[in-house]
């Protein structure tokens, strides 16, 4: 595995399997009286969040703490960053504090890549979501959740529905699930599929109904209703009618198929309330699995000789 986790494209199948296997063992920790391991004692993990994301930050924080790492939360809001401090100066500050890993969430695609390759820091860099690029740990936890329910992913059909164009979750999942052997179909209105998607290792479709019958899992992406102001679709109602997972569509899924969503959900928009709360919806479990997967990532990145 490489020193940083910036994109799921950087993960070989072996890397990904190692992360998932490690997470599998770590997940059992949640059932033990003492949920903490001494593994990263004395290491410092910095959560550098230029965008608000309490869910992701808490998940990484719990993961680091369960491995006994020291955690520093650095939120850009109200800090020197919002007063115009550059990414570089922030990075140099973290370096001076002796960060071993920097978990970065940034609104600009490629910011984690920049941090990792600029020479500003020696730490491992973990991409916790960058702009409309990638969110690798989300994809890993999705793959982990899929594997728990469906077994090995070879030949499994996963349908990802929604705003693929602006979704870092879709990008990371498309690459990772393909690496793991799954057949991924991206379903979206043509306006919300990126130019060049034909070169991705996935199928695409504009028709959700046609993609339901054979899929083993359907992953609904959050769609912001503001997108209709940019004419990506005419109205929230029309979007919901054509691309929402409602009860009727849910009934057409195979018996074993599961429903996923990276959260936060727009109930009534891309997913109906009943589907969201159904027993075959694994949305809450995704959150639990997130901690184990992020522990695995931090462990595998940090338990190695410093460069």
């Amino acid at each position: 595995m490489q020193r940083h986790l910036l994109s799921t494209a950087d993960l070989t199948r072996d890397d990904a399997v190692q992360i998932l296997d490690t997470a599998e063992e770590l997940r059992s920790l949640a059932d033990r009286p003492i949920k903490k391991l001494p593994t990263l004692r004395g290491r410092t993990v910095v959560n550098l969040f230029f965008e608000d994301s309490t869910r992701t930050r808490i998940s990484f924080e719990a993961a680091a703490k369960r491995l006994s790492a020291d955690v520093i939360n650095f939120s850009a809001k109200g800090s020197s960053v919002s007063k115009g401090e550059s990414l570089k100066d922030t990075a140099l500050t973290l370096e001076a504090m002796g960060a071993d890993a920097v978990v970065i969430r940034h609104g600009s695609s490629g910011a984690p890549h920049r941090l990792a390759t600029s020479g500003w820091v020696r730490s491992s860099v973990v991409n916790a979501g960058d702009g409309t690029h990638e969110h690798p740990t989300q994809a890993l936890l999705d793959a982990f959740t899929l594997r728990r329910h469906l077994g090995e992913l070879d030949g499994r059909r996963v349908t990802i529905v929604g705003d693929v164009l602006h979704s870092r979750v879709a990008r990371s999942n498309a690459l990772l699930l393909s690496t793991l052997g799954a057949e991924v179909t991206l379903v979206a209105p043509p306006t919300l599929l990126p130019v060049g998607v034909s070169s991705w290792p996935v199928q695409t479709s504009y028709d959700l109904d046609a993609s339901l019958d054979k899929c083993d899992a359907v992953m609904m992406l959050r769609v912001q209703s503001e997108r209709m102001n940019d004419a990506f679709f005419p109205s929230a109602r029309e979007y919901s009618r054509r691309y929402g997972l409602d009860d009727r569509r849910f009934a057409r899924l195979p018996e074993h198929a599961i429903v996923m969503h990276p959260g936060p959900m727009n109930r009534g928009m891309e997913i109906s309330a009943d589907v969201a709360d159904h027993a075959r919806s694994v949305i809450v479990e995704q959150v639990t699995n997130g901690v184990a997967v992020r522990m695995a990532v931090l462990y595998l990145l940090l338990s190695r000789e410093p460069a």
């Binding site: 490690t22 063992e25 001494p38 593994t39 462990y299 338990s303 190695r304 000789e305 410093p306």
Partner: peptide, 18 residues
């Protein structure tokens, strides 16, 4: 594995079941 004192000295190990 997670309790070893030589984690910095060798490549990360895959965990075994407990």
């Amino acid at each position: 594995t997670m309790y070893r004192d030589d984690l910095r000295l060798r490549p990360a190990r895959t965990l075994e079941p407990t």
